[in-house]
Structures are given as structure tokens and as C-alpha cells.
Amino acid sequence: MKATFQVPSITCNHCVDKIEKFVGEIEGVSFIDVSVEKKSVVVEFDAPATQDLIKEALLDAGQEVV
């Protein structure tokens, strides 16, 4: 499964690193693409990962998800 999250609070590479760390810890996540320019995060994943778990990880990383 693939999901795109709009994350307007992404401003720098530190944000990218933190997002990759938090989302990458979720079992089932196979790909993460964070774009500072587009302020988006694209995640490819399989169970047990879910969109809700990914959104929670983004929030835990200090990001706003819309």
C-alpha cells in the first residue's frame, strides 16, 4: 500500500531525518520519501503498518499532518 501525507511543518533536513527515523521504526514500512519542497511524505507499507500508525509517528516526530 502507498500513502501520501501533507506535512506543512517540514522545513529542513533535520525534519527529514527525524521523520525517516520515526516512520522507519514502524514494522511493515518499506519505503519513505520526504520532500521539503512539496512538504509531503510518501510511504509504502504493508501490514502491520497502517496509515494511522504512520500519522501517529509523524506527530511523535513533532510534525503537523493535514
Rank of each mutant, 00 (worst) to 15 (best):
residue 53 L to M: 12
residue 39 K to H: 08
residue 62 G to F: 13
residue 58 L to I: 14
residue 35 S to C: 07
residue 1 M to P: 05
residue 4 T to Y: 14
residue 34 V to L: 03
residue 37 E to S: 11
residue 28 G to W: 01
residue 33 D to N: 10
residue 66 V to H: 08
residue 34 V to W: 00
residue 5 F to V: 05
residue 5 F to S: 05
residue 65 V to I: 10
residue 64 E to R: 10
residue 12 C to A: 12
residue 25 E to I: 10
residue 19 I to K: 00
residue 58 L to F: 04
residue 22 F to G: 04
residue 30 S to K: 14
residue 39 K to P: 01
residue 48 P to T: 03
residue 37 E to C: 06
residue 36 V to C: 15
residue 56 E to A: 14
residue 14 H to R: 15
residue 40 S to P: 02
residue 26 I to W: 00
residue 38 K to H: 13
residue 29 V to L: 03
residue 13 N to T: 13
residue 65 V to D: 05
residue 3 A to D: 09
residue 37 E to L: 07
residue 36 V to N: 03
residue 19 I to Y: 00
residue 10 I to H: 02
residue 34 V to F: 05
residue 20 E to H: 14
residue 59 L to E: 09
residue 43 V to Q: 00
residue 66 V to A: 10
residue 40 S to F: 11
residue 58 L to H: 02
residue 29 V to I: 06
residue 34 V to H: 02
residue 41 V to N: 00
residue 32 I to F: 01
residue 17 D to M: 11
residue 57 A to N: 01
residue 17 D to I: 14
residue 44 E to M: 13
residue 59 L to C: 06
residue 44 E to Q: 10
residue 55 K to F: 13
residue 14 H to G: 12
residue 55 K to Y: 14
residue 17 D to N: 09
residue 59 L to S: 06
residue 26 I to N: 01
residue 41 V to T: 01
residue 65 V to N: 05
residue 16 V to Q: 05
residue 31 F to V: 07
residue 24 G to V: 05
residue 23 V to Y: 04
residue 49 A to H: 02
residue 33 D to W: 13
residue 35 S to H: 06
residue 52 D to L: 09
residue 66 V to I: 13
residue 51 Q to D: 07
residue 33 D to G: 09
residue 47 A to H: 13
residue 9 S to C: 12
residue 21 K to T: 06
residue 51 Q to W: 15
residue 35 S to Y: 04
residue 39 K to N: 06
residue 54 I to P: 00
residue 53 L to Q: 12
residue 14 H to F: 13
residue 30 S to P: 00
residue 24 G to K: 09
residue 39 K to Y: 04
residue 50 T to Y: 04
residue 26 I to C: 03
residue 18 K to N: 07
residue 37 E to P: 06
residue 2 K to W: 09
residue 5 F to Q: 04
residue 51 Q to C: 15
residue 22 F to E: 04
residue 33 D to F: 13
residue 8 P to K: 11
residue 31 F to E: 06
residue 52 D to V: 09
residue 57 A to P: 01
residue 44 E to A: 09
residue 7 V to Q: 03
residue 23 V to H: 01
residue 55 K to V: 15
residue 23 V to M: 04
residue 9 S to F: 11
residue 35 S to R: 05
residue 54 I to R: 00
residue 16 V to A: 09
residue 54 I to Y: 02
residue 2 K to E: 06
residue 45 F to V: 00
residue 30 S to E: 06
residue 58 L to T: 03
residue 16 V to E: 04
residue 40 S to A: 07
residue 33 D to S: 13
residue 45 F to M: 00
residue 8 P to Q: 09
residue 19 I to W: 03
residue 37 E to G: 06
residue 19 I to P: 02
residue 13 N to S: 13
residue 11 T to R: 13
residue 15 C to N: 10
residue 43 V to A: 03
residue 40 S to G: 03
residue 2 K to A: 04
residue 8 P to R: 10
residue 13 N to P: 12
residue 45 F to E: 01
residue 19 I to F: 03
residue 22 F to I: 13
residue 13 N to A: 13
residue 11 T to W: 15
residue 34 V to N: 01
residue 23 V to F: 03
residue 4 T to N: 08
residue 50 T to C: 04
residue 52 D to M: 11
residue 19 I to S: 01
residue 56 E to V: 09
residue 64 E to A: 08
residue 62 G to I: 13
residue 56 E to K: 15
residue 39 K to F: 05
residue 27 E to D: 10
residue 22 F to Q: 06
residue 18 K to S: 07
residue 49 A to W: 02
residue 35 S to N: 12
residue 40 S to E: 13
residue 4 T to A: 08
residue 26 I to K: 00
residue 58 L to G: 02
residue 22 F to P: 03
residue 40 S to C: 13
residue 28 G to R: 00
residue 21 K to C: 05
residue 44 E to N: 08
residue 23 V to I: 11
residue 6 Q to K: 10
residue 38 K to D: 10
residue 59 L to N: 07
residue 49 A to C: 05
residue 7 V to Y: 02
residue 45 F to H: 02
residue 43 V to E: 02
residue 41 V to C: 04
residue 63 Q to Y: 15
residue 56 E to C: 10
residue 6 Q to I: 15
residue 25 E to A: 15
residue 57 A to K: 07
residue 54 I to C: 01
residue 57 A to Y: 00
residue 16 V to D: 04
residue 4 T to K: 08
residue 35 S to A: 04
residue 14 H to I: 15
residue 18 K to Q: 09
residue 19 I to Q: 00
residue 42 V to H: 11
residue 27 E to S: 07
residue 39 K to E: 04
residue 1 M to Q: 13
residue 30 S to I: 13
residue 7 V to I: 09
residue 55 K to L: 14
residue 65 V to M: 08
residue 19 I to R: 00
residue 45 F to S: 02
residue 64 E to M: 14
residue 58 L to M: 05
residue 64 E to V: 15
residue 42 V to N: 06
residue 58 L to S: 03
residue 19 I to T: 01
residue 62 G to V: 12
residue 41 V to G: 01
residue 42 V to L: 11
residue 15 C to W: 11
residue 48 P to A: 02
residue 38 K to G: 09
residue 32 I to Y: 00
residue 24 G to D: 03
residue 3 A to M: 09
residue 18 K to F: 08
